[in-house]
Write a protein that binds this DNA or RNA. Sequence first.
DNA 1: ACTTATTTGTGCAAAATTCCACAATCTAGT
DNA 2: ACTAGATTGTGGAATTTTGCACAAATAAGT
Lengths: 211, 211
Amino acid sequence: MKFSKIPTATITRLSIYSRYLEALSQEGVKIIASDKLAQKCGINPAQIRKDLAYFGEFGIRGVGYFVKELLFEIKRILGLNKTWKMALLGIGNLGSALLAHQNFIRQGYEFVAVFDVDPAKVGRRVPSGQIIHPMEELETVVKETNVEIGVIATPAAKAQMAALRLISAGVKAILNFAPIQLQVPEGMAVENVDFTVKLDNLAYNLTMAEG
Amino acid sequence: MKFSKIPTATITRLSIYSRYLEALSQEGVKIIASDKLAQKCGINPAQIRKDLAYFGEFGIRGVGYFVKELLFEIKRILGLNKTWKMALLGIGNLGSALLAHQNFIRQGYEFVAVFDVDPAKVGRRVPSGQIIHPMEELETVVKETNVEIGVIATPAAKAQMAALRLISAGVKAILNFAPIQLQVPEGMAVENVDFTVKLDNLAYNLTMAEG
DNA sequence: ACTTATTTGTGCAAAATTCCACAATCTAGT
DNA sequence: ACTAGATTGTGGAATTTTGCACAAATAAGT
């Protein structure tokens, strides 16, 4: 298949496939067919094959896909064949939860630096070992530690400022947990994790269902 | 405009609009044009107008939209003119963070019951006041307190079981924080909050950008 | 070797979504 | 009343995304 712009939805699905393949791999499953994988992921099987077709031919007709091989390829495609260095901004409840989750995060991501504005927190060590830096040090520390992804877990009111600092420090990707649309220059990759929006979707669905 | 199936994306955007309208309302802004709102939300202005057109005519040509009025209408559309009762399953780091966030959640959502499997946690009171129930009591408590939305903040391995319990208790909507695709019967509304998938998207973007 | 049972990869049509462009409508100024 | 300037609401084109349906390819049994 020729080069074409790859849908974001495809990348999102690849990530979901990789999750299942990882599970299958650990269960010792050697081979999986698109139908089976599709069923597990709640996705159309043709969709899976088409998603993969953007990047090459990874299956064997009449057989299916070798789980480990496909997992390896998808990880390579997603760029997970390296460890991404992240900075965490905002060590509140959510930030702490993310740090605690760190061990559970699938291989490939690591918080190398953490920041907060609160002088009471600055200088303390979080349970996972990192020392909390003041925001003022962001640019220096980010550059020193080669942070590639910034994670914003500040209150909404501080999020835009946090984003600006990350940007001026040269970070090109931001994972934003604050319930606000960040204003960023062209070329920045921003992903929002926004459960209030998801809740609103549920509320709408329930409202419609009941009339 | 006639009745037609409303895109999920439209509902998601309505939620985002409502967030800005709330901010504008608090700033005392009376009137907003779709162009301005679009710019703030990073969305095409025609898209906003079309989204709204699914539900009626809320603006005044040559003028724009009355902020408070439009906010009210969107909230009504989304079903936020009531308080939704939620149950939280899993009082770990993430669950605790969600409870702590509770005061910050936009009006309309409330955790009326919380659950955990850990006997050491059961019976204790969380900072926001709720007593942690054992999972066994889920069905009873959910029915007693009229829970409408279940929030799963358990480890991935326990999430499917948690979902099943919620379903059998009659809950029709689930907000799932576990990194797993829940298998649920037709008619259930499930929304996933999945930051590992978002991270993978960022990793892919960065990988592509650098070649 | 041939046949049957699978399952992938993909051309193409269908469906969904986005967005342009403009008529319709409103305000304000003269 | 009329004109100028602004902004909504929307038909429809353009684009994107999905998924059917089938040829191509593989394995296994006879």
